[in-house]
C-alpha cells in the first residue's frame, strides 16, 4: 500500500504529461506534429520489423567501441600522468584545452577526412570522451592517500602491482565519475555524427525519415534515441553503485 502511494506520487506527472500529449495531438492538423498514437504505431512497426533494432545495434556498437577506446587510453594515460608530477604540470594546459573543444565541432573534420563508415564515428566518440576520463583519472590518482602510497613504498610493492592494486582502486571513484561525464557526451557525439552523414544507425533512420518527409518516423526515431540514452544513463548509475559500493558504504561521499 505504502509503495503504491509512493509510486503514485512519483509517476503521476509523467503519466499526466504523456496523456496530455496523447489527446492534444490526437486531432493535430499540423503535419509537423503527428499524433502520438501515430508515432507509437510506426515505432512499433519498425521495431517489430527489426529495422530499428538493427539501427540501434549499429549505433550502440559504435558508441561502446568508442567509449572503450576512450576509457582504455584515458585511464592508462591518466595513471601515468597522475603519478608523474612533472608530466602533469607540463601537460595540464594542453589537456584542458582539448577538453574545451566543443566535441560536436570535431564531427565534420573527422568524418570529412575519413569518410562515412563506422571507424570515423568511433574515433569521434573516442576523441570526445577521452578528455573527461583522462582529467578525472589524473585527479583520482592525485587524491590517493599519501599514507597508502608510502606504505606501499615501505613494503617494496612492485610497480605494476602497485598500479593495479593501489593506485587504480584508489582512483576508481574519480575514474567512474569521469566515465559518467563521458557517457552523455559520447551519446550526443554519436547522434551528431550520424545526423551529419551516415548510411546506417539510429541517426540515419531519423535523417532519412526527415529527408523523405516521413514525419511520424522522424519523431519516433528521436524518441527512440532519447529513451535509449535515458536507459543507458540509468543503467550506468546502477553499475556505478555496484562497482563503488565500498566507496559509498565507507561514507567517503
Amino acid at each position: 500500500m505504502k509503495t503504491l502511494i509512493r509510486a503514485g506520487w512519483t509517476l503521476w506527472l509523467p503519466v499526466l504529461l504523456v496523456t496530455i500529449w496523447w489527446f492534444a495531438s490526437a486531432n493535430s492538423t499540423n503535419i509537423y506534429v503527428p499524433s502520438l498514437s501515430r508515432i507509437v504505431e510506426v515505432l512499433w512497426r519498425d521495431i517489430s520489423s527489426g529495422l530499428l533494432i538493427d539501427a540501434a545495434r549499429v549505433s550502440l556498437t559504435n558508441l561502446a567501441v568508442g567509449l572503450l577506446i576512450a576509457a582504455a587510453v584515458g585511464i592508462l594515460l591518466g595513471l601515468l600522468i597522475g603519478e608523474t608530477r612533472r608530466l602533469r604540470l607540463i601537460l595540464d594546459p594542453y589537456i584542458h584545452f582539448f577538453r574545451s573543444v566543443p566535441q560536436s565541432a570535431l564531427v565534420p573534420l573527422i568524418i570529412g577526412a575519413m569518410g562515412i563508415g563506422a571507424a570515423p564515428k568511433i574515433y569521434t566518440v573516442a576523441f570526445a570522451c577521452v578528455w573527461p576520463i583522462l582529467l578525472n583519472t589524473i585527479d583520482g590518482v592525485r587524491g590517493v592517500e599519501p599514507t597508502i602510497r608510502s606504505v606501499s613504498r615501505v613494503f617494496g610493492v612492485p610497480k605494476l602491482l602497485y598500479f593495479r592494486r593501489v593506485v587504480l582502486p584508489g582512483a576508481m571513484p574519480q575514474v567512474v565519475a569521469g566515465l559518467r561525464v563521458a557517457l552523455p557526451i559520447g551519446i550526443v557525439v554519436m547522434v551528431v555524427s550520424e545526423l551529419f552523414a551516415s548510411n546506417q544507425g539510429l541517426g540515419f533512420y531519423i535523417l532519412n525519415s526527415s529527408a523523405t518527409f516521413q514525419i511520424p518516423e522522424t519523431w519516433g526515431g528521436a524518441l527512440m534515441v532519447g529513451v535509449i540514452g535515458y536507459i543507458i544513463v540509468i543503467m550506468f548509475s546502477l553499475f556505478e553503485r555496484r562497482v563503488l559500493s565500498w566507496y559509498f558504504r565507507s561514507g567517503a561521499l
Binding site: 552523455p184 550526443v188 526527415s210 535515458y230
Partner: peptide, 26 residues
Amino acid sequence: DRSTSVTVEFGRAFPTIALMPVILLL
C-alpha cells in the same frame, strides 16, 4: 520534488540533440 523527480531525471538523461530534426521541422 517527488512529483517531478522522474520527469527531471528523464529530461537530464535524454540526449536532446536527437530532437533536433523534429525541432528543425517545426
